[in-house]
Every structure is written in C-alpha cells, then in structure tokens.
Design a protein around this nucleic acid. Structure first.
Length: 261
DNA sequence: AGAAAGCCTCGGCCGC
DNA sequence: TGCGGCCGAGGCTTTC
C-alpha cells in the first residue's frame, strides 16, 4: 500500500526526530525478518543519535551517528510519531490504529516514540541496509536514469509494467503508480519494454514526472486519475471505454482498452 | 470468500 | 547436457 509518495511523507515526518537520541528500540520477529535475530534491532539502535533522514524508493532511511537504519512498510505499514500519522490513514486496509498493530519502533530521549504500525506484518526494519540492490530513486528520476529503465540489451525485454516494478532497475514504482503513468502515457502495460518507440518513451517520461508531481501534491499514490476506473467492470475516466485487467509482473494491472496501446 | 498498493523465494524455461 | 540468468507464480500475513 505505501508506495514511494507515502514513504516520502513518512520520511518527512521522521525529520521531526532528527537530533533525538534513541534510548530503546523494539521489534517483533516479523519486522525483524531481514535481520539475523529478533533482538538485533533493539541491540543495534540503543544510544544512537538520529542525524538525518533519507529514502531510496520505498526504503526509508534514518541516518545516525553510527549505523544507518532502514524501514520498509510493506502493504499496510504506516509510520507514526507518537500518534501523528505521516498520511491520513490508507486507502486500502483499516483506517484505524491499534496499539497491538505496532510491530517495531524507537523510543527517544525526549519521550516521543517513532513506530511502525502494520496490521499485515509485511513491514520490516533494517540495520545498514544494502542499497546496491536498488536502482535510482523514482521520485525525481533523471532523463538519463529513465533511458536506462527503457533500454533492453537483448530481445523485447519484460512487459513495460513489469520493468517499472523491478526495484533493481528503478526504486519506488509500485503497482498503482506503474498503472497510473502508463495510463497517462497511453501505453499498454503488456508491451515489451524494448518495443516502445521514441515518441512513446518521451510520453512515458513526461507522464512519469507529471504523475509524481501531481500525486505528491494530492497526497499519495491512491489519488491518481486512473484509480477511478480501477475496479472490475470499471470505465476509463478519460474516455469512458471499458477497462481491462490482468496479472502483469505479478500484480493486478488495469488499463484502458481504448487509449492504451 | 477473495483479493490486496510489497517483497522474497523457488522452479521452469531459454539461450549460450 | 550443464549452467546461469530471467521471469512468472506463489507465499508470506492479516484484514476488509
């Protein structure tokens, strides 16, 4: 659920704890799944002072005077500072918060708590996360980085939708965002990446930048134009044609039968 | 009851 | 035939 725009809002929220010292960290076994042991997070974070925040794709980072800390939010994770949500709940999943859905977090020397609230337990905490497996950040992607996303060395390459979702190629495009930018660019998500011509590439790049900009203003990935037709039997909000759907790149994908080709 | 917006692993297939 | 890389399917987990 949280895609890059939501994670960016969490990062902005986390800015408020810069300067604070961590007195205690905690996590359950699920949140610690990428760590050697469940207690690794608690042992690693104790005593660190938070010096800044960062983000690569959907991975949020806390810079400290020691280790670099990472948080992933899975599909239903939210970052809370005391009880202030980084965004106003989530479109999918419960819109309520419950103390027993707090899976990991940090207690700070000023009494505040920065916590991962995650009903579905797919969020993760990380210590010194490996960034080498992630492509360049999708939010403010450069033309050069974009060119690499759509460049395939041999064959047609994967479907463009699957390519967009590959975090090693570009970090931060989630399922909704991928559908939204292809919708705006008028490109069929099933198209082989290498089959996009120059005009289509420019259209996709333009749609990409505009989608990020617009949705960031609106407040998240679930406020895209495309969302209106994103339901079984839905109609395209642009031209009223029927929307199609299929699994592409492992995710449910919706596209307009008329203007995306 | 089925599907869900992330991510990881596994197994099959393709090409060298 | 052997092997690595790629890609899709399935699993995780809980909720609505």
């Amino acid at each position: 659920m949280p895609e890059i725009l939501e994670v960016e809002s969490y990062r902005a929220l986390a800015e408020r704890v810069v300067g604070a010292r961590i007195v205690r960290g905690f996590s359950d076994q699920y949140a610690a799944k990428k760590l050697p042991t469940t207690s690794f997070w608690a042992r690693s974070v104790k005593g660190l002072t938070i010096t800044g925040t960062d983000r690569r794709g959907k991975l949020m980072l806390l810079e400290t005077d020691g280790l670099r800390l990472g948080m992933r939010f899975g599909m239903t994770g939210v970052l809370l500072l005391d009880s202030d949500a980084g965004i106003d709940g989530l479109f999918y999943g419960p819109h309520t918060y419950r103390p027993d859905w707090i899976r990991a977090g940090l207690e700070l020397d000023d009494g505040r708590r920065l916590v991962l609230h995650d009903p579905r337990r797919l969020g993760r905490v990380e210590v010194d996360p490996d960034l080498s497996e992630l492509g360049p950040d999708a939010l403010a992607i450069s033309r050069k980085a974009f060119d690499e996303v759509v460049t395939i060395t041999r064959g047609e390459g994967p479907a463009i939708k699957a390519r967009l979702l590959d975090q090693a190629v570009v970090a931060g495009v989630g399922n909704l965002l991928g559908d939204e930018m292809l919708f705006r660019a008028g490109i069929d998500p099933r198209r082989g990446t290498a089959t996009l011509n120059g005009v289509e590439r420019v259209a996709l790049f333009t749609a990409w930048r505009k989608t990020m900009k617009t949705l960031q203003k609106r407040g998240g990935s679930h406020t895209g134009d495309h969302m209106l037709g994103r339901a079984p039997g839905g109609l395209c909000p642009r031209d009223g044609a029927t929307m199609r759907s299929a699994t592409i790149g492992g995710r449910t994908t919706y596209w307009c039968s008329l203007h995306q080709h």
